[in-house]
Amino acid sequence: MIFFQQLLNGLQLGSIYALVALGYTMVYGIILLLNFAHGDIIMVGAYVSWVVMSRLQLGPITAVFASVLMCTLLGVVIEKVAYAPLRSAPRLSLLITAIGVSYFLENGAQLIFGADGKNMNAIFSIPNLTIGSVTLSSTALVTLAVTIVAMIGLLMLVHKTKMGKAMRAVSEDMGAAQLMGISVNATISFTFAIGSLLAGIGSVLYSNIYQMATPTMGSMLGLKAFVAAVLGGIGSIPGAMIGGFAVGFIETFVSAAKIGQQSLSVWRDAVVFAILIIVLVVKPTGIMGHKVREKV
């Protein structure tokens, strides 16, 4: 029975990683940037929830909308202000800028809100589900359900809508996409908006689970989501989904595992980063990744 509960915990954690990994992978797919500021968007979303609920005393629904909206806007603004001017610069400049943006957000949050964490109430509180002797966390079920809906929405967007198809076209061949009359800048902005919107949803779900906001909460979360994106195959949307759940499961099971009386939970971060190293050594394209053909 504990197994089922751990399975659900893994799905819950994996949902968050998958939502964040999607933003990483979409941005990488389109401008080949590892957007290390992406995890910090989650942190900003968490503070927005805290401000709305604890400071302004507004309801959880307002918090959800404010949080998701702010994350989306923030992602677009970061792209316009920090990355767009570097469109034809070497990729390393872009990567360094992303790290700079990450520090800027973390330290900015610390300046405004202080270094200590801010506690908040759960955003949704629904009683746990008990089936026979198994108690299933309703938070985990909600997290999983919201994530699945978001993923289906994303897949529909990318495969059925004109803008989604344009995103795929730009990510495959930016020059050819321009020759189709696709505005590359608008498509890149749209990609950041969607990636950040998913991070916003992830942020709400994460805040609902851990009920706390700290300035650096996004960095470890972001790194693990990055591992998930690489494991799934960076640039691949289904890959980010699979990678997210895989990392969530692995982390949960390592946390729960014991050798004799010794809990392995202190090893969970090490194991996740070991996956990164193994993937990069053994199969750098990840589970679903495409072989990158060098264009002449």
Partner: peptide
């Protein structure tokens, strides 16, 4: 419109989707 050197079709998109992209405007 330009049909570029080396064709540069969107190889991971379907034939139909490629044509749709051509009519993007």
């Amino acid at each position: 419109a330009q049909c570029p050197e080396g064709r540069r079709v969107f190889s991971r998109m379907t034939v139909q989707e490629n044509l749709e992209m051509g009519a993007y405007t």
